[in-house]
Amino acid sequence: MAANEFNDFYCNEVLSGRTPVEIVRETENVLAFYHTRPFYEEHIVVIPKRHILSIITVKQDELDILKEIFSVIKDIATEMNKKFGACTVSTNVGSYQSTKHMHWHVRYGNRIRD
């Protein structure tokens, strides 16, 4: 299934360059950026540059990308924890996943919008 066959904001907008983002960290396979419409005071999204639907669909040949993602998440969470004393790291699966591209939220603070 091609990425554009379903709701994939990250492939269709962010990775294509159609929606500009403020990059926090970038590696060969991972992009971390400030959420385009943040829900929290500090809200960073971490995505693989390769289309992977969800954490439960990761294939054997994608495990190195997953390790790279977790390395980026660890660095961002460490920095956020030093700055604020806490943070939340989360991902969604199935019907909770509004964007059908594996992504992680690293966030801190009060909810600023619904």
Rank of each mutant, 00 (worst) to 15 (best):
A2E: 14
A2G: 12
E5N: 06
N7M: 14
N7F: 10
D8K: 09
Y10W: 03
Y10H: 12
N12D: 14
V14D: 00
G17P: 00
R18H: 10
R18I: 11
R18K: 14
T19N: 12
P20I: 04
E22Y: 06
E22L: 14
I23R: 06
E26K: 08
E26A: 10
E26P: 08
L31S: 00
L31A: 01
F33T: 10
Y34T: 11
Y34S: 08
T36C: 00
F39D: 15
F39N: 13
F39K: 06
Y40T: 11
E41F: 10
I44D: 00
V46K: 06
V46G: 06
P48V: 09
K49V: 06
K49Y: 07
R50A: 09
R50P: 08
H51I: 02
I52W: 05
I52D: 01
I52G: 04
I52R: 05
T57R: 04
V58K: 07
K59C: 06
Q60L: 13
E62Y: 02
L63E: 15
L63Q: 11
D64G: 11
L66I: 09
E68Q: 06
I69W: 03
V72K: 03
K74L: 12
D75K: 03
A77E: 01
A77N: 04
A77W: 05
T78H: 04
T78V: 07
E79Y: 03
M80G: 02
K82V: 04
K83R: 08
G85W: 05
G85K: 04
A86H: 13
C87D: 10
T91S: 14
T91I: 06
T91A: 13
N92E: 12
G94S: 01
S95M: 08
Y96S: 04
H101S: 01
V106E: 00
V106T: 01
Y108E: 12
G109C: 08
N110E: 14
N110W: 07
R111Y: 09
R111K: 15
R113S: 13
D114T: 00
